[in-house]
Design a protein around this nucleic acid. Structure first.
Lengths: 347, 347
DNA sequence: TTGAAAGCGCTAACAG
DNA sequence: CTGTTAGCGCTTTCAA
């Protein structure tokens, strides 16, 4: 229905090759020819047909991002960073959201189909060796965010280190019974690494690891949600000896835990201190201490890396690890702090 | 590089047409032929080339969403709703984010290019008549979210009504000097309509409209951000007669206003009541009273409408308007309420 | 500087 | 049920 290059060529009395040339100025075209063509194109309202272009060039100028549904706040920030990096490129972005973790695989396959995109970034999903091999076989430029694989560029945050840091700080503040709220044991790597950091910090400080103080939330999906944190906190409060501090493996869970405290008329940090992970928008407003991930930076870097790889497919894979930054807020203070000085946490 | 339909056809000793048939099962294919083809395809790792398919079918199975950058929380929710609706379709989604409002136009044109997508939804951006005409001329199925135009399907929330409702409630609670924080006068429609609702409610209640109590935040971009709300609140507090209530045209601004109150050692609703608009995630945690927009629903409906229009391009445009729902939380209570009963808002 | 023509990989009549 | 063939709209040698 829209005019094609043939229509323009015909009306401008040139060949389609010439029209193509004026629209891509790769090759010199006589000035008056160019003007004539442009005039006709304008009159007709001609715009090149993208699919046709894609096929001819074997290039789509499209990047695909595959993201699991549950990483709501995370992916939004990362995507924003990706857009930042896309601004002065001529690439567009498509998004494959996987409603459930297990469907990530399907979305990934789809994103990798030949002729679909020029590269893909996969967010927060672990790659089995078989999958990694599949990706490699596809020949598609590929970048991982939040996980690693030796085949590909990857960008992540030092989860162990961040968790270690958080727990160490809690210990320094004088907390004795530090619990950990995390997701199912078959957790994705980031969560697993945070648990490892938690355990390591305790061990290094000469504390035993008390299984009762580690609660795995099994709520779908992988417990990355407030309800999970809420229930986990309630479970912890029912313990004969409840914890005096909680390190939650995500802010979302931390918020749920905070809510549970409040519903039990308890306060943070006076009754139980809480530290989360991520630094989502809400955390700041609620005073949740946390480890900040530079989500936007990560997204930005991800597409930078991807674009680089598209340009030079054979460069050796890079692995960049950001250090999470501890953000001190009101849900984690010194144990000896008085109620008077600590801000009350509402709702 | 990846195998093509020709490779499969050759090795399976059939024509490309047959291979195409087994991959699209539109037409019957003998069982053993199909199996042979499949086996070869599998062995070769063949997957149809999407660009080629798109060109041949004149269909991309792609939807484009054009969203302005500044609508951070809003777009994330709407996009999620769009994904909801896409789950059992075979369409994928691409996202065009406009880093600045004025670039929305460029992104829109890009999204509309022939052969790019099968339809586009435009978020929170007003369409000039010239633009509307351009869109119509492109022949692309098109849906508006957050604004209207007689040419297209549109989905929005009743902004006037919501604002009217909010202000009426404030009046019933006994507030006398109700201010309004909004964005620049050349505001996008939703904000403008909220201001109109605000003014109407006051007028209908026999109150005069005090220009001092309407503050337009001019901070980029369009003041849809916390800083803008913060500054606006400070400005209001400096008035000889400060307001006793504020209706902010977005939650983000409401949060900023809340922060300003806190920094001035004031509380909501005791000193100044605050009502926002949107109901973003943070609002719940902070106790911000607000008008909820069913963002996810809206996104879902947007792609539904779009898919319908793709199916039947000539159906008459529909206009659906959701009613915003007032969510009573702690930043807006009865004036006579005591501090004891009202929850303190932290940080 | 320009045109002719082949090709990108797939689909869809139309015959058989 | 299957093959032949002509596109889909654009790019790009190769000649002129």
């Amino acid at each position: 229905m829209p005019p094609t290059i043939y229509d323009v060529a015909e009306r401008a009395k040139v060949s389609t090759a010439t029209v193509s040339r004026v629209f891509n100025n790769r090759t010199r075209v006589a000035k008056d020819t160019r003007e004539r063509v442009m005039k006709v194109a304008e009159a007709l309202g001609y715009t090149p047909h993208i699919s046709a272009k894609n096929l001819a060039l074997q290039k789509t100028n499209l990047l695909a991002a595959v993201v699991p549904f549950e990483t709501d706040f995370f992916y939004a920030q990362v995507m924003r960073g990706m857009q930042d990096a896309l601004i002065d490129s001529d690439f567009d972005l498509m998004v494959y959201m996987a409603p459930e973790k297990r469907e990530t695989r399907g979305q990934l396959e789809r994103a990798l189909q030949p002729g679909r995109a020029d590269g893909v970034v996969l967010l927060s999903a672990e790659l089995s060796d078989a999958q990694a091999e599949m990706v490699r076989a596809s020949g598609q430029p590929f970048v991982l965010v939040d996980t690693h694989h030796s085949f590909f560029d990857s960008i992540s945050v030092d989860n162990d280190e961040g968790a270690y840091d958080a727990v160490q700080r809690l210990l320094r503040h004088g907390y004795q019974r530090i619990a950990h709220i995390t997701v199912a044991p078959e957790a994705p790597t980031p969560a697993r690494n945070r648990r490892i950091g938690y355990e390591q910090a305790l061990t290094d400080a000469g504390h035993a690891i008390n299984p009762d103080l580690i609660v795995y939330s099994t709520t779908y999906p992988f417990g990355f949600m407030e309800e999970a944190g809420y229930e986990a906190m309630e479970q912890l409060l029912e313990l004969p000896e409840p914890p005096d501090a909680v390190f939650a493996c995500s802010d979302v869970q931390g918020l749920g835990a905070l809510q549970a405290l409040k519903d039990h008329s308890l306060q943070a940090p006076e009754d139980v201190a809480i530290v989360g992970f991520d630094d989502i928008h809400t955390s700041r407003h609620v005073g949740l201490s946390t480890l900040r991930q530079p989500m936007r930076e990560m997204g930005k870097l991800a597409v930078r890396k991807l674009l680089q790889r598209i340009a030079q497919p054979s460069r050796t894979p890079s692995k960049t690890v950001f250090a999470p930054e501890y953000i001190a807020r009101s849900t984690c203070g010194t144990v000896t702090g008085t109620r008077a000085t600590a801000a009350a946490v509402a709702l």
